[in-house]
Design a protein around this nucleic acid. Structure first.
Length: 631
RNA sequence: GUCUCCGUAGCUCAGCAGGAUAGAGCACCAGAUUCCUAAUCUGGGGGCCGUGGGUUCGAAUCCCGCCGGGGACACCA
C-alpha cells in the first residue's frame, strides 16, 4: 500500500498538477520531483522541489512555476495552504483533518502500516553471517548477523520477497585443517579413557608413540608434520563426541596419518557439530529462518564446472600469467600460468584466478558457483553482508555476477566494521572458549548477567548493534547497553512503548479490554473509529507528523540497505512521545487519560495506540521484542 | 604502490538517493521540581561539515586532487 504514505500520495498529486501545467513535458521529466518533510517546521508540513527540478526543461523560471503550482496544490482537499518559497520550493500546509485521518489508517493497518510495494515483490536473496564452520561465532559475526537479519526484515517490509541465506564454507583447506584439529582432540579424548591409557602404555610401539603425542600440542604437530590452526578448547567436546561415536575406529592401523576417507568422515562430523553450535548461537540472537547452502555440495554437484562453462561460453576465461601486485610483492611470488576470469571487463582491477595449481577451484571460483546457484533460483537482486575485511573482494564478486547474469542482476554488498567490546572503560579481548576473541555467546552472557532474562539481553544486543551505520566502527559498551536512562537508546525506545502500554492499561474500563502485547492489535484496531478533533496540541500534531513519515522511512532505508535508520527513527519517535508525556506533567489538560473528558481521552488513546503500533512495527524489523512493562 | 571505507560541535554519532538558517545524545552553563505521568524536565552557548578545485539555480551530500586514519591487496577462506 503506497497510499498510506501521504508523502508519496501528495507527490503523485504534485506530478499530476505539474503535468497539467506543462503538457509538453515527457513523463520522465518528473522523476526527480520529491515531496519531503521540510527541515524547518515553520515551512509547513511538506515541501516539494518540483518547480526547481523541471524549471529548466520547461524553460520557466522556478519561482514563477512554483507560484503556479502552489495555486493548484492549494486547491487539493488535503491541503490547507500552499506557498512558493525560496528559489522555487512549494511549501504545503496540510489540513489538520487530513493529518488526523492518518491515525485510523495506522490503527486499521496495524503493523502492516509502512509496508511497501515499490519493489513489486521482486525476489531478493540476502546472505549474511556465513561464518566459517571452524569455530564459534564472534562479535564481528554477531554484528553481521544482526545487520543482515534486520536488513532482510526491512526489505521484506518494504515489499521484496526475501530469502535469508547462509553459505557454509565447508569445502577447502580450512575445514581440512579443522578436521586435523578435531582428530587431535579425538586422540586426547581417547587418552582420557582407561582403554586409551592402557593402549598408550602397552600398545604397539609406533602407534603408541603416535597416539601419545596427542597429549602435547607441539609433539602432535611434530609427529604429523603440521601446524594446528584451530587450537581452541571448543573442539574438546567434539573430540569426545568423535570418541563416543567411533570408539577407536579412527586410529590409523600403523601410525601415520589418518586415511583420507577417515579424515573426511571426521571433517563432516566436525562441520556438522560446528554448524549445530552456530545455529544455536544464531537462535540465541533471534536469527532464524535462514536457508543454508553448502559449498561442498555445490562442488559435488559440479556447479563450479557449470559456472566455468557459462563464463567460458561468454569468452571470459583464459590461461594467463598475472603481474605481481604493485608496491607489495609477496616474497614467494613467481610467474604462474593460471585459469583466469576476465574480471577487468566488469570494473575489477585485475583478472582473477579460478583454479589452484592442484586443479581444484579457488574460493572465488566456488563463490561464483554459489552465485550461479542463486541466479538459477531466480533471484532478481542479491545482497551480502560481509565484514569490512572482505571489502577487497566486492568488485570481483560484482564482476562475476554481472558476467553470469549479463548485467541484469545487481549485487549489493553491505560491509560491517569492527566491534570493540568495552567493559569498565577497557576493551574486552579474551575469551574463555576461543582464546583470542570475544564470542557471540560470551557477549550475550555478559549482557545477560546484567538483565532479568536472556530475551532482554538479545534485544539489547540487537538494538545496540543497529545504532551505528554498519560501515562505521562501533564501541559496544557493556555497561551502557543495559543502562536504564535516556542515554541508552534501547531503553529510551522500549520505555516509550512501555509508557504507551501503561496508558492503555490505565484505560481498561474505557477500552473494555486489558492491554497487553497480545491484545494490542485488537485494542488498537478498536480505537480506529475514535473521534479525533480534540487532538490539536503542537506536541500531539508533531507526533502524528512523525508517524506519517514511517512508510517513507522504511522505503528509503530499504533502498539504501541501511537498517540502522530504523533505530534512529524509533529514537526520534520515542522522543516525540516522551515530549508529549512530559507536557502532561506540567499541564493536566494534556494528560492522556482524563476522567472528565471521555471523547478527548479516546482521541489520545488512538494517538497512543498508533504510536505503539509504529514502535512495534519498527522493533519487529529490528528483531527486538517490545516490552510492555518496565520495573 | 593500487583499491576501498571514513574524516560533521569538546566527546560519541545522525544527516532522509543535492535543497532553504547543518541536527541528536553526552559534557558544559542557567533555570524548574511540596501536588501532578520525574528510572527527571525546560532553556542556552558551542561547528569556514579535513583541505583545494569542479559540476549545479543550490554541495556535508556528486566528480577530481591533496592531507590524515581504518581495511584489503596472486594458487588463504
Amino acid at each position: 500500500m503506497t497510499d498510506h504514505d501521504i508523502f508519496a500520495a501528495l507527490r503523485r498529486r504534485t506530478v499530476a498538477a505539474l503535468a497539467e501545467l506543462l503538457p509538453d513535458l515527457p513523463a520522465d521529466a518528473f522523476a526527480r520531483v520529491q515531496m519531503e518533510p521540510p527541515r524547518d517546521p515553520s515551512h509547513g508540513d511538506m515541501a516539494t522541489n518540483a518547480a526547481l527540478v523541471v524549471g529548466k526543461l520547461a524553460r520557466q523560471a522556478p519561482p514563477k512555476l512554483a507560484a503556479a503550482l502552489a495555486e493548484r496544490l492549494a486547491a487539493l482537499p488535503e491541503v490547507e495552504s500552499a506557498a512558493p518559497a525560496g528559489p522555487g520550493f512549494v511549501n504545503l500546509r496540510l489540513r489538520e483533518s487530513f493529518l488526523l485521518a492518518q491515525l485510523p489508517v495506522i490503527l486499521a493497518e496495524g503493523e502492516r502500516y509502512g509496508d511497501g510495494t515499490a519493489s513489486a515483490g521482486r525476489r531478493i536473496n540476502v546472505e549474511y553471517v556465513s561464518a566459517n564452520p571452524t569455530g564459534p561465532m564472534h562479535v564481528g559475526h554477531c554484528r553481521g548477523a544482526v545487520v543482515g537479519d534486520a536488513l532482510a526484515n526491512l526489505l521484506a517490509k518494504a515489499g521484496w520477497a526475501v530469502t535469508k541465506e547462509y553459505y557454509i564454507n565447508d569445502a577447502g583447506a580450512q575445514v581440512q585443517a579443522l578436521a586435523m584439529a578435531a582428530y587431535w582432540r579425538y586422540l586426547q579424548a581417547l587418552l582420557d579413557t582407561r582403554e586409551g591409557q592402557d593402549f598408550a602404555a602397552s600398545g604397539p610401539a609406533p602407534l603408541r608413540d603416535f597416539a601419545a603425542s596427542a597429549r602435547d600440542r607441539e609433539a602432535f604437530e611434530r609427529t604429523h608434520g603440521i601446524a594446528l590452526q584451530y587450537g581452541g578448547d571448543y573442539l574438546v567436546p567434539v573430540g569426545q563426541a568423535l570418541h563416543a561415536r567411533f570408539g577407536f575406529g579412527l586410529v590409523p592401523e600403523s601410525g601415520g596419518e589418518p586415511a583420507p576417507a577417515t579424515l573426511t568422515a571426521i571433517r563432516d562430523f566436525t562441520v556438522e557439530r560446528m554448524m549445530e553450535s552456530i545455529r544455536e548461537d544464531l537462535a540465541a540472537l533471534g536469527v532464524t529462518g535462514q536457508h543454508f547452502v553448502s559449498e561442498a555440495q555445490l562442488v559435488r554437484e559440479g556447479k563450479l564446472e557449470q559456472a566455468e562453462k557459462v563464463l567460458s561460453y561468454k569468452g571470459l576465461i583464459y590461461r594467463g600469467v598475472l603481474e605481481p601486485p604493485k608496491g607489495k610483492t609477496p616474497e614467494d611470488w613467481e610467474p604462474r600460468e593460471q585459469t583466469l576470469f576476465r574480471a577487468t571487463q566488469f570494473g575489477d582491477e585485475v583478472d582473477r584466478p579460478l583454479r589452484k595449481s592442484d586443479g581444484s577451484g579457488t574460493y572465488f571460483a566456488n563463490d561464483i558457483a554459489n552465485h550461479l546457484h542463486k541466479l538459477e533460483r531466480g533471484f532478481a537482486e542479491l545482497v551480502h553482508v560481509w565484514g569490512a575485511d572482505h571489502g577487497g573482494y566486492v568488485k570481483r564478486m560484482q564482476a562475476a555476477v554481472a558476467a553470469l547474469s549479463s548485467g541484469t542482476v545487481p549485487l549489493d554488498v553491505v560491509l560491517t566494521q569492527i566491534v570493540r567490546v568495552m567493559k569498565d572503560g577497557e576493551p574486552v579481548r579474551m575469551s574463555k572458549r576461543a582464546g583470542t576473541f570475544v564470542t557471540l555467546r560470551d557477549l550475550l552472557e555478559m549482557v545477560a548477567e546484567k538483565v532479568a532474562n536472556p530475551g532482554e539481553a538479545r534485544d539489547a544486543v540487537r538494538f545496540t548493534m543497529l545504532t551505528r551505520k554498519s560501515d562505521a566502527q562501533m564501541e559496544f559498551d557493556l555497561d551502557k547497553v543495559v543502562e536504564q536512562s535516556r542515554e541508552n537508546p534501547v531503553f529510551y525506545v522500549q520505555y516509550a512503548y512501555a509508557r504507551c502500554m501503561s496508558v492503555l492499561r490505565g484505560a481498561e474500563a474505557l477500552l473494555g479490554a486489558k492491554a497487553t502485547n497480545d491484545t494490542f492489535p485488537a485494542v488498537a484496531a478498536g480505537l480506529a473509529a475514535s473521534p479525533l478533533e480534540s487532538l490539536a496540541d503542537p506536541a500531539e500534531l508533531a507526533l502524528i507528523r512523525r508517524l506519517t513519515t514511517w512508510p517513507r522511512t522504511v522505503e528509503a532505508a530499504a533502498i539504501a540497505r541501511e537498517p540502522h535508520r530504523i533505530a534512529f527513527f524509533l529514537h526520534d519517535l520515542a522522543g516525540d512521545f516522551h515530549v508529549l508525556w512530559n507536557k502532561g506533567r506540567d499541564d493536566a489538560t494534556l494528560r492522556f487519560i482524563r476522567a472528565d473528558e471521555p471523547e478527548a481521552t479516546r482521541a489520545r488513546l488512538a494517538l497512543v495506540a498508533a504510536t505503539g503500533t509504529v514502535i512495534r512495527s519498527g522493533l519487529a524489523v529490528m528483531g527486538v521484542t517490545p516490552v510492555e512493562e518496565m520495573r
